[in-house]
Design a protein around this nucleic acid. Structure first.
Lengths: 225, 225
DNA sequence: ATGATAACCGAACGCCTGTTCTGTGTCAAG
DNA sequence: CTTGACACAGAACAGGCGTTCGGTTATCAT
């Protein structure tokens, strides 16, 4: 009978640790670490063991190696590189549907359904890794100055400060919307980004579920209707 | 009298060649080249000469080096890296002012006034290097679903196809605007991106200067008013 | 038990690589 | 002409670094 390996689940803790170290080292130094540097930072005393793990990671497709070349390794595809931030594209957002939130353990999201953003473009210090992106479907967000096909990048949040642009689910109205959030004495005010449009006033009794804060909006203008 | 150096202009042909090689090597291998590899590909027979140039490039701020570390070099700032596209931020765009176009030879734009965009986000194959970015000032572009503070990325163009979103200067009205462009029998129709707003109809007699096509719009939502 | 196998360690080998030192030819200033 | 900065070449040194090999331990199926 065929049996599974010792620690089964394909990627042991040490594999993950090496992968993480390569990524952070590369981000900081702009070049890959040496085998010995990996060993030091991952508590592996022998270079041969590091090499041993590196071989496995190569066979499993997590890294590529240039044999005989010092620091000749690179992370493949699904790992953020350089000054890039890779956020998963969790789905679409539209007025009539709730907001899809990515599962907290999104280990594996392929290049196809993810968005790359230059870190230098990121506002404040939202460089956290729990951001996610949604593609806007339909023209229901035009009062937020967001059009069909636009991509919004969100940070998960259950509450907001005044002035934050939030993605909310209004269960009473069965509606998803993107608005600037203001708490007022008798309830909430949801202000459209488009200054020519009127705000939505909510009483305290109406349910308002904040799903996330909008961090960035990206519009590609390649299509033409 | 103080005299200039042999080849004057700060960056000799060989410096440029080395810089280019490092960039292309890094892009291909995801790790920097060794001194000897630079020598081979730049027709420099001695490693000391490569080192000699590398020192100069470091002093002039074009690269950084990690001494004693193999392949410990990286391009600094103003050079595109990895899958990043760096477009110069040419200035601001607003209704009452003409559109600033960057000088064709924009050799030196610092990190401060440039925008980085992931290549994977770029529509079609606009990966050309003549793109430029403008920051929107004021709320005059709201009919294009573009707000104060947004960043628009443009490709220089003097003409457009129907359906392209273009930045135009209407000299008769002394106005800059962003609209979808349609040529019609009796003139032009400039259609706002916001579907709730009416188009501008132009007669053939009215001057219309196309300055560029809009490729992308980026909105950072860190501010809150 | 026992043998197989995965997961290690330590050391040694040898090329890879950055550094340094000596030397050469050129060109312009004094 | 001399001097000196500059742009190179070549060789040698020393440490960096990937690779390999022999050996050890623990786990697990037979």
């Amino acid at each position: 009978m065929m049996m599974m390996v010792r620690k089964s689940k394909g990627l042991g803790e040490r594999h993950q640790r090496i992968l993480d170290f390569i990524a952070s080292y590369q981000r900081e130094h702009k070049h890959p670490p040496s085998i010995r540097e990996i060993g030091e930072h991952c508590d592996i005393s022998s270079t041969s063991v590091v090499n041993y793990y590196l071989d496995q990671l190569e066979k499993s497709g997590h890294i590529e190696r240039d044999r005989k070349i010092s620091r000749g390794m690179r992370l493949t595809g699904n790992t953020p590189l350089g000054d890039m931030l890779r956020v998963p594209l969790a789905g679409v957002i539209q007025a009539g549907e709730p907001i899809p939130i990515p599962s907290t353990d999104f280990n594996t999201f392929t290049a196809e359904d993810s968005i790359e953003v230059a870190m230098s473009l990121m506002p404040s210090r939202e460089k956290g890794k729990d951001l996610f992106a949604l593609k806007v479907q339909g023209e229901s967000m035009i009062d937020a100055m967001i059009n069909d096909g636009d991509i919004v990048i969100l940070k998960p949040a259950q509450e907001a400060r005044n002035g934050d642009m939030v993605a909310v689910w209004l269960s009473d109205r069965n509606e998803t919307t993107l608005k600037y959030y203001f708490k007022e004495k008798d309830g909430y005010r949801l202000q459209p980004a488009n200054p020519t449009m009127k705000p939505i006033m909510l009483k305290k009794t109406e349910a308002l579920e904040i799903k996330g804060k909008v961090v960035m909006v990206i519009r590609k203008v390649d299509r033409y209707n």
